[in-house]
Design a protein around this nucleic acid. Sequence first.
DNA 1: GCAGTCCTTGACACTCAGTGCCAAAAGATG
DNA 2: CATCTTTTGGCACTGAGTGTCAAGGACTGC
Lengths: 197, 197
Amino acid sequence: MGCYPCRVSFLERKRQLVKDELSHVAAQLIARNGYEETTVEQIVEAAGVSRRTFFRYFRSKEDVIVEVLTAVGEHAESVIDGRPADEAPALSVRHALMELTVHYRGFPEKALALSKLIIGTPALRARYLDRQFQWRQSVAARLQARSGTDPVRAALIAGVAFTALDVALAAWVASDGAADLSDLVQRTLDLAKIDEL
Amino acid sequence: MGCYPCRVSFLERKRQLVKDELSHVAAQLIARNGYEETTVEQIVEAAGVSRRTFFRYFRSKEDVIVEVLTAVGEHAESVIDGRPADEAPALSVRHALMELTVHYRGFPEKALALSKLIIGTPALRARYLDRQFQWRQSVAARLQARSGTDPVRAALIAGVAFTALDVALAAWVASDGAADLSDLVQRTLDLAKIDEL
DNA sequence: GCAGTCCTTGACACTCAGTGCCAAAAGATG
DNA sequence: CATCTTTTGGCACTGAGTGTCAAGGACTGC
């Protein structure tokens, strides 16, 4: 807080640097050799930090992969809060999901590789689905609090939205990134008739 | 196969006995002391078998809890196959889910306790959601193979169905088992307008 | 009943994920 | 420069999960 030109402290920037390095190295090693075959030992050795430090930045080995996508998901929650309170729940959710795909566009090849990896690795898939479950609950709670929607209906809208995202994402991965993700999500949401819930 | 009165071999029955015992003891210990706090060591000690044997019956500590429900889920797959090929996909899925709730009625208090445990324990919840993901894929594939449904539509129907089940199950748990699960699932499926997909 | 075969079990050793603890190093602050 | 805080590394430990092998029952043919 002492130096004016620095928005964030030196330590904080260093922390982010180490975290990014670990994340990057892990993604590379795991993409090449497989998830189960890659040990935390190998990751920290390549990143130049101790094993103990790894677990200070990531709660588990799974998190080093999944957290990249979950950061995007948490952003979706704030999008919901930013929408007008009298907007139809389905429309707010649609905007949130669109925001999500926009983030994916930022690093399409990396997002595709990570998605493939997560879908194809049981341990990572389980963690990811659990994170998604938490988003669902969070989004449902926000919808409910905002416009007094019926709890079951709110949970259903959130659930169907993420299911549509799942299906669209699977189709995107199946097309090997050739299809447009935003279009895919839009069309899947329409197919799910989310606006009529 | 030598003895006529025995439908299944001695060994097979013994295997089932050991598995049931492990499953029962584990559920009891974990319900009392919590999932993380209960070690496999404690479970096998109470069941009177070796630690190694535990992992011959269950792939992981999570499986000893989750597998009870997944056995029910796998049955749902065969229900789909048993439905007439020209039936509307949504209706077949509805029947499969109904079959599932019927199984839950068989041991309501145990199903409730297990559901609570799984929903409240991240590790178990993640495994359960992954199993559900597999059912979804399996059901979607069957729907697609059966009546040549569009892949995306098949995946969506299966996904929405399981999401509705999730929501209904959450409401059931929230009501502490007071509500009727079958009704809850039916109404949630209606709310999701699954017949119109 | 008896030898041979198959399956199950227990015991040991091992790898690896994850955690608690403490001392040293590095950055922040006066 | 001295001090305080934060980060780091090293160590030891628990617990999940796996490979291996020898011993103990159960099923076969004789």
